[in-house]
Design a protein around this nucleic acid. Structure first.
Lengths: 276, 276
DNA sequence: ATAATAGTGTCTTTTAGACACTATCGT
DNA sequence: ACGATAGTGTCTAAAAGACACTATTAT
């Protein structure tokens, strides 16, 4: 082992003179951590659509422990070593609400790092977005309950409701305006997600995955209308179909229900995996 | 101070029964870190445009220390406590290359976290994108040199060149195909940035900030052409002007140079700050 | 005058949108 | 038959694009 007159001389030698292999061996042997490090979490904005209620839904959990005990929050949790944040968010979504998503169907949203965003200290979070057909949620260990909250846009406000709970977010100011509030800065994350979807759904209609694999034109119109905060009849059936047909393909016919039987469509493969 | 029969009973009490204030007091007093934490860095993709050479440029530093000593890399560094990642990247850009950017002019790109992306261990990075008019760079302590590299798109490859150094990236495969390579996964970060700009510059022409505050229509055409990998004459002057005039305003006339004097334009304020 | 650049005007093609019409079901 | 839904076709207005033309400068 080499001898050094000082710690800083040693550092200089390994960083600037030794081989990279020697540097790494030395580096791993040092007292970690040299710098203070943040905790890193992931959060998932998971949306679906209930065809009977004609409502968009977002999955929220009620936190069992501090901080924000009993508050509602996005599913998520700490990132583990040897895991990408994408893998973490898939694992946490599975653990906390019992929903399995593939890595093709998650999209990274934004990383939030405002100092003070977590009362425990220095925590930054990488947020993700995903769409699935409606399925039951099951609470993991960290949650008292898990619920699909209805997500309704009225003018420039977003109403998140489930039973007696109502959380109101303002699309313009970004603030939470109701009496119930979400944990951490999860309001900001949800608003970011909502705006992102609304802005690009006409060119990247992955949103339609909230309808499950297959859907009808009118169901697709209804989902779009929800994000735009308008009645679906404001979106002309004929024109909508004409412009969207490039993104999905007819796969069958729906034999039930009132009115003329609708055809069934499915998103083209190009819109399922491999986003930008 | 309360007494507990076991550490886990204590944890349960503070997380699930105590008040949030008591929980936080207890939490801060615990031996940190309970979980292993990653280091978090930021990286800046900073672009400008040299009007004489008619070349897009990207700022790269040559690393002074391991890992990747003497390799070229994006400016960036470790995030400090009590700093958002946005603030970090502004600070690091100032320290490493001597360029001052405002927070309105940076855009978060993506967070990279693939295990193994940094040989020192668990490091994730939050990448940012910014455009400035050309200005001299000055190397900070961590860099041997700092340089503006020319960034040229030829078909689906990106050539980064400066003097004898040439780094080639493939837009399709995402891989680095030349003999010189960048440090870490910085190729992937640059490609992500390039694709992002190319995809949205028609609707959000902040790219034009690479021309400095003011520019002519033809200069703008040239910048666009660089990102599209075509000759600027392929972009019709008249049609380009018609469609872009909604984004910028005439502010004067340029009295020098060959040909009819061009008018000077400036990006509307709406496109300088406050991105989605 | 001519080459080089900047800017205007016109015409065509494409796309987006309004809207009237036809088709098929349950009641 | 009628209301409700789904789907087609037509017409118009707006946007995108091709291209010819005019304007101003250096040489």
């Amino acid at each position: 082992m080499k001898e050094f007159t000082s710690k800083s001389a040693e550092k200089h030698y390994y960083e600037k003179e030794a081989s990279e292999a020697d540097f790494l061996t030395w580096y791993q042997a040092q007292d970690q951590p040299k710098y203070e490090k943040p905790s890193v979490t992931v959060d998932m904005v998971l949306m679906c659509y209930n065809k009977e209620e004609e409502q968009l839904k977002i999955a929220l959990i009620q936190r069992k422990g501090h901080p924000f005990r009993n508050s509602w929050a996005l599913p998520g949790g700490f990132v583990n070593p040897n895991e990408s944040t994408g893998q973490s968010v898939i694992r946490e979504t599975q653990e906390e609400i019992g929903v399995t998503i593939s890595k093709q169907n998650i999209e990274q949203l934004h990383t939030f790092s405002t100092p003070g965003r977590d009362p425990r200290g220095w925590v930054i979070t990488v947020s993700y977005l995903a769409f699935i057909g409606e399925e039951p949620l099951s609470a993991g260990d960290d949650a008292n309950q898990v619920r699909w909250f209805s997500l309704e846009r009225k003018a420039n406000q977003i109403y998140l409701t489930s039973g007696e709970i109502e959380i109101i977010l303002d699309l313009v100011t970004g603030a939470s305006v109701g009496k119930d509030t979400l944990a951490f800065d999860h309001s900001a994350i949800i608003l970011k997600a909502f705006k992102r979807v609304a802005n690009k759904m006409e060119h990247e209609p992955q949103v339609l995955l909230v309808l499950g694999k297959d859907f009808t034109i009118t169901e697709a119109r209804k989902v779009f209308a929800k994000f735009l905060g308008i009645d679906f009849k404001m979106i002309d059936h004929s024109n909508f179909k004409k412009s969207m047909l490039q993104y999905f393909t007819e796969v069958g016919e729906k034999p039930v229900g009132i009115g003329r039987p609708s055809k069934i469509y499915r998103l083209n493969d190009a819109f399922l995996g491999d986003k930008m």
